[in-house]
Amino acid sequence: MSRLLAWVLALVFVWIVNNQIHHFIDPYILSIVIFAGINIIFATSLNLISGFTGQFSMGHAGFMAIGAYVSALLSTSFFASFPQLFFVVIFLSGCIAAVFGYIVALPSLRLRGDYLAIVTLGFGEIIRVIILNINSLGGARGMTDIPPLSSFGWVYTGVVAALFMLWRLTRSSQGRAFLAVREDEIAASSMGVPTTHVKLQAFVIGAFLAGVAGSLFAHYLSYLNPQTFDLNKSFEAIIMVVLGGMGSISGSVIAAVFLTVIRELLRPLQDMIGIDLRMILYSLLLILVMILRPKGLLGTKEWIDFVPRWPKKVLRQRRPLHEG
């Protein structure tokens, strides 16, 4: 009960901060904070698929694109006169993205490892090319005039909701099924875990959250372009997951915030020499992490594993997640 209370308090805190934030943060910092929030949702959603369930997906930006475009369509048509129903738009676009997650996962999950990676990459590209060719979505010109509804409050409500969902999910019997599939699919299936079903679930939930991230993204920038959701966007999510630790929600959160901030810190340098240094840094980080610390910064640990004995109650209630 007290844990639930903590999440509710977090939500209340988000909305209190939302009303005051303009007084003590300038808009530029606020935009970084909001992008960090969107990246947190995006990275943790991929972590469920790649980190917890071990299915290496390289087309995650495709689901984000679907969420973004569906929400933009909804809020410029049906919901145009009801901006207060923004959360319905977010939810619906997440659901559509989840449907696509199901459609993509159903055939892809017959494959493993490298093949799954390249097929999901292919699906991501196909989604992008199709959006690029739909004229009513703006095609290559992009989609403009999306109402800027993503406030700090909505973005971080999304973050809290996503983290709550993932945290509860990965600590349930369902979550242990995800881990079992990652560790050894054959052993898991011989223990009665319906592996295909579990993988499908991971994809659908991951796609849902990516769709949510996409709709928040669309309503923050109020402009969408298919080019945003190219391979590099998927790679960005992969880097966040790998850097933070495959199978660590806190790791993904830290990595998402870190990479968003780094990107802004590099911006002056980038303007000076005109090259996107960010991607060079990302790729170097990726190679070095894989060679020097193959499990990522936090491995499969969560932040709570690093907390000393002070909050006894929380420690006791935490079920062991990774044995051995």
């Binding site: 490298d114 990676a117 790679f235 090259i275 060079i280 790729s283 170097l284 990726l286 190679i287 060679i291």
Partner: peptide, 21 residues
């Protein structure tokens, strides 16, 4: 194998963007 795959993606991106540099 998944680690090697991720490294390969990293090498590919590194060459692309140092190429741009």
């Amino acid at each position: 194998r998944i680690n090697v795959l991720i490294t390969a993606v990293g090498v590919s991106m590194f060459l692309q963007f140092t190429g741009q540099l």
